[in-house]
Design a binder for these strands. Structure first.
Lengths: 342, 342
DNA sequence: TTTAGCGCTGCAAACGCTTGCAAGAACACT
DNA sequence: AGTGTTCTTGCAAGCGTTTGCAGCGCTAAA
């Protein structure tokens, strides 16, 4: 097994020390922004470091007990605008800090989350953002100790007291359904998200609450269990359209499934929104690219990512910081896929 | 500065050694799959490691001269189906190996690519996949030495002799244009990609070659300079439609800009494909979600990512391996946005 | 029985850095 | 000038591994 080392011209702290005529510990202190270093010394060191093109070796730093300046991001996959938007926010915010990003996709460790997380946390990340689909507990329980800094995105955890970011799912769904009702729709189909996810449940509850509030009978046949994927939106809508008395509007629990709905409706030769209205949830970038442009409940996805990072950095700065939950507001965005009942 | 260490229950190689009654170097050798270890010893060690829940410390390993088992991925951003598809392929392939992924976005280091890359390469990645938008040279020249394993995706580099993966851009464009011509279109608008990218140039050349081959005069006014973004497709199409004699088909250099084209056409009240045909390039997942479903030239994006990983791992195994270029085939996918000239 | 040879194992050094501790330098005060 | 403080700085240990080298025990040959 040939381990070809790249131990070529690595400039180390020792080189900088030699170059600037101080001890290597002083260099370390300067580089770590320590106080108690004389101004002139600091200058000398920084200048030497610059001249030599010194760049710190993260492994060594971390081994010796320092930070790695890396945060880990656990996501199910990147195949989805919802996630990539959030990741974009995370990336943006991280760019202002000096942390780098380690990306872990969970699909490769089905059923072994615990080992996975253990490895990660024991490894080289200073903190973790969990953007996991289901059962966060599986991941959390594996955290070496509850002091390891992490934040949970869009998942409530009722076992541990986790720092969390999410959006007003209930309210968003309530608003969307109310909007459709005000447009005169009485029969509103609903494509559910994956029922294991609490965002899905909250949206469902919001939908029902809106019906109830407007005294519209809840009709079970209009509710389709889905999984947030396009396909389930498609088949769900197909089913709804085949009903003896089909709905005049369909509210899909997320944009992805709403796209499936659009597709099914087009296929049935119906017009949107003249014949039937469609509303989604998320407002991923695609939502305004499809035809017709999708009316949807906007989640501030980028912002969610940013806030997650901010919370994590906060925790990193000050490990004693209390866990907290930040819930960002959603907003109905009316586009071309919805209209008064014809 | 409070450095709260997590040096809690870290199980080290020493613990495993103690538990299994051998020396730590033997443990190391077992864990690294070395030969020259007696079968029974190996068993004992592995069992002890398992029992203790040992997981290697990457920093230490790397410091001591081993591998980090991390590969770095340099991308401009994740806000784009084209990239995320490729990244998906990379992730997929990586899942079969035991490498983890470090994600670096380049936008944060405008103009300082060289320092950035230096840091990365000097840091903890064993190899690098560069999925950078323009001027790969900027990045490459910074690689500490040309022996650092890396592969270039969808970018040709004519300075260094780099291992590269790309697709048949020229051929794809040629096929698409020929297809439109065979449908009877004579005036085919073309939305160019970013002219700095050779994929954009190659596609343009393919388009022109097809025209020439079918003896259709090249008309400069039908070619719009773009940048691969939706907006440029939109404004480009708007312009084309306003021509005294507008084209009967538009070929956009990528799907994203094709979406802009669709949008502009819808807005103009024209029907697709009855009034005008549209063809894209890439076949990102969205392409079959828009309405009408987009006819496009399929690039095997996922596969490109996979191949990139495979080439990199190959290089990692065997650093002496010659650089090579792999070009994957594109394929025209006919959907609903194109039809014979009406 | 001795000895060479081989398979296997352990020791110790190194990787580049952080940080507690102690000592030197500088300064102010008596 | 002497002493006590307060700043600065250097030394050395240690972080968890890998790996060259030396050496052990054992077998096989003499």
């Amino acid at each position: 097994m040939d381990i070809s080392r790249k131990k070529n011209s690595q400039v180390t702290i020792l080189d900088v020390a030699r170059e600037s005529g101080v001890s290597y510990s002083t260099v370390s202190r300067v580089l770590n922004g320590f106080d108690f270093v004389k101004g002139s010394t600091r200058e000398k060191v920084l200048e030497a470091a610059e001249r030599l093109g010194y760049v710190a070796n993260i492994q060594a730093r971390s081994l010796a007990g320092g930070r790695t300046q890396i945060i880990g991001l656990l996501v199910p996959g990147l195949d989805n605008g919802y996630i990539t938007e959030i990741v974009g926010g995370i990336d943006q915010e991280l760019a202002h800090s000096d942390y780098d990003l380690m990306l872990y996709t969970t699909h490769r460790f089905q059923g072994k989350e615990s080992l996975y997380v253990k490895t990660i946390a024991n490894g080289l990340v200073d903190g973790l953002i969990l953007l996991v689909p289901h059962n966060a507990q599986n991941y959390l329980q594996a955290l070496p100790n509850q002091n390891f800094p992490y934040v949970l995105v869009d998942q409530i955890d009722n076992t541990y007291n986790s720092t969390t970011v999410d959006a007003t799912n209930w309210q968003g769904a309530y608003d969307a359904a109310s909007y459709l009702i005000k447009l005169g729709h009485q029969r509103i189909g609903f494509i559910m998200g994956h029922p294991e996810l609490n965002s899905a449940r909250e949206r469902f509850d919001g939908y029902r609450a809106a019906l109830q509030h407007h005294r519209i009978a809840y009709e079970e046949s209009l509710v389709i269990e889905g999984d947030y994927l396009t396909k389930s939106g498609y088949s769900g809508a197909k089913h709804l359209l085949s009903l003896p008395q089909p709905p005049t509007a369909i509210f899909a629990s997320n944009d992805l499934s709403a796209f499936g709905v659009l597709d099914a409706i087009h296929e049935a030769g119906l017009r949107i929104p003249e014949d039937i209205s469609v509303v989604g949830f998320d407002d991923i970038p695609l939502a305004s690219l499809v035809y017709p442009k999708l009316t949807t409940v906007r989640q501030p996805l980028v912002q969610i990512g940013q806030v997650a990072v901010r919370l994590l950095l906060e925790k990193l700065e000050n490990p004693e910081k209390e866990a907290r939950r930040v819930t960002l507001a959603t907003e109905l965005v009316v586009r071309d896929s919805s209209a008064p009942r014809g």
